[in-house]
Design a protein around this nucleic acid. Structure first.
Lengths: 336, 336
DNA sequence: AGGCAGGATGATATCGATAACAAGTTGGAA
DNA sequence: TTCCAACTTGTTATCGATATCATCCTGCCT
């Protein structure tokens, strides 16, 4: 920077100011500085700047898996919301592990992010302490934690699944099956499962028929294996709800491979409204979640908190919408 | 850090050394320091450290889209390869735009990354100049650029597609169609297309029948629309190759929706070997690409370059493998 | 005893920007 | 004419760590 300053014949401070929009530098000087910057190929060094201004310009975000398009949509929402704010996203993925999350949180905090976005509300004690000590806004997303750290942007996975059960029950389905994991690792999955079981019970539709598969991340293949087990055990099942569209897709394809008709022989529904579900034949009934919006809103809450940092408005909960999308895979007229 | 130092009764320098493994600090002192760190909840500030050590600890990586599982696999490969190296990934996505890439490169360089990983070989002049000036190792991935900046980890998309055409031709297919974009934005897509056209020509199978769809990112829906156009225009097409499994999947589902059998009435193949292709019914013939390996190797090349920074071994090209995966969607016995 | 290698620790300057305050200019109001 | 506001620019200290060199100690070799 000193080099640029000398080249133009001003002080380094003036060059520094020229890089910010608000600073008072005459238009002419700024132009000359920018020409020099271009000529010299100078690139601003933010790490030095962030040290003195105590603003790193980072936002840290942790998602369970980057390969899951629901979460990458959220990441995209965050990035888009951060555009032109001068903030940059530091993205990490936890592999659905609270221990890995803890390590990542520590690694992220070493970069002094101005805010943190997490997925879910299940964290190690140490992670909570570190976040607390950091004194920066934290947003938990994708679910409604019982003990929120700070802000929350999400929805009740349990109620969303419940809504799907009720909707399908109102269409006449009675014998419900469920496919999904049980591990504590995927808390959203567990919540969906318990929402399913609770609602089936409430509707007086007997104990729910639930099959588990291995640990997250959810794969399509698991869905195929699971529906086979489920139908072996409870052959008269009418409709199978899956923790995710990915497993629903796997389940449907496996059925077709075995010559069964969906929804003729068995109806299937998913969760998440992935692109695949609207394209698949039969198209898949699912819960649409505003993944992108979760990201945008989480970032927006963070930006709010950073702006009016004076008066913390307390822990806010921003509910994001979801809706049942009925498609061919649960169509009672039974085409396909 | 000064706080920790005072608490333990040593100098800040000793605390700093305790955080690195190689430094000479007595085991006992280190233990006391770490206890203090724990007690005080101190978290190391890397931004300060990187300023004085001139090592940011960042690796920048740009991918066209984070929602595409091929690229997120690559990102995962990079992250995994970087584990325990003390380097952190700064991830950005360019939306298939060279202009956005240029902006991102500038934003990344402001963080003084120690290396950069790019997707493809198509960059703006200014981007090239900035990277040049930065004097850090650069790895271009996923294709073989005509004018590499520095290192390359990838494969020839054109030859891979050519291999697929030849393989299918050897199975007796004669009338080849192709679905994919033409825009310069997706250079890998263009290369696959030209590989297709060239090979069909070489095999004496008449001019290739190619349909284009809109701009990237590739969607499943585009595949469905495209195959309809293609079959309207050339109804006797026997096999359709798609720029990506995603469009192949869309195409297949659209065919089934219209009552056509795949591969009975029309065979379809994709590119990329996404999870969906092995699960889908019919399973989809495709080219398997080592997405994860591209990431790992790109990171490995970068680490090599950072280690032996003394003698630049010049621009190296690391070829990554690909292979044809024949599946049901092009099975000549024509089940399904 | 003297000397020296080698391990452990401390003191100081420094990385490259920005915060905070100081100071020079210009133009218009009193 | 005088003075002050508003704008522009410069000076100095500082952010929090690390590089580098200096220092101190211990123990062993000659």
């Amino acid at each position: 920077m000193a080099e640029v300053a000398k080249y133009v014949g001003v002080s380094a401070m003036t060059v520094s100011r020229a890089f910010r929009q608000d600073a008072s530098v005459s238009e002419e000087t700024r132009k000359r500085i920018m020409e020099a910057v271009d000529a010299l190929g100078y690139v601003l060094d933010l790490s030095a700047g962030s040290l003195s201004s105590r603003r790193s310009g980072f936002i840290a975000a942790l998602v369970p898996s980057i390969n899951n398009s629901n979460f990458s949509d959220t990441a995209r929402g965050i990035t888009d919301a951060l555009e032109n704010t001068g903030l940059q996203l530091l993205l990490g993925y936890t592999d659905y592990s609270a221990e890995k999350e803890e390590k990542l949180i520590e690694a992220m905090l070493r970069r002094r992010p101005e805010g943190v976005i997490l997925t879910g509300g299940s964290h190690t004690d140490r992670a909570r302490r570190m976040l607390d000590k950091a004194g920066i806004p934290v947003v938990e997303t994708w679910e409604l934690p019982e003990e929120p750290i700070n802000h929350v942007v999400g929805f009740s996975n349990s109620e969303a699944m419940s809504l799907l059960v009720r909707t399908l029950a109102s269409q006449g389905y009675r014998k419900f099956g469920y496919i999904g994991g049980t591990t504590a690792r995927d808390t959203r999955g567990s919540q969906r499962r318990s929402g399913f079981l609770k609602t089936v019970e409430e509707l007086g539709l007997g104990p729910g028929r639930a099959i588990s598969f291995g640990v997250p991340p959810i794969t399509m293949e698991q869905g195929g294996q699971a529906i086979v087990s489920l139908l072996e055990r409870w052959p008269d099942t009418e409709v199978v709800l899956c923790v995710s569209d990915l497993s629903a897709f796997g389940a449907i394809m496996e059925c077709k491979r075995r010559g069964m008709s969906v929804p003729g022989d068995i109806a299937v529904a998913g969760f998440g409204d992935y692109e695949i579900s609207s394209i698949c034949h039969p198209s898949i009934t699912t819960i649409n979640v505003d993944c992108y919006g979760i990201g945008r809103q989480a970032a927006a809450r963070l930006l709010d908190a950073l702006q009016g940092s004076g008066e913390a408005t307390g822990d806010e909960i921003t509910l994001t919408g979801y809706r049942v999308v009925l498609r061919e895979s649960t169509d009672r007229s039974g085409a396909s």
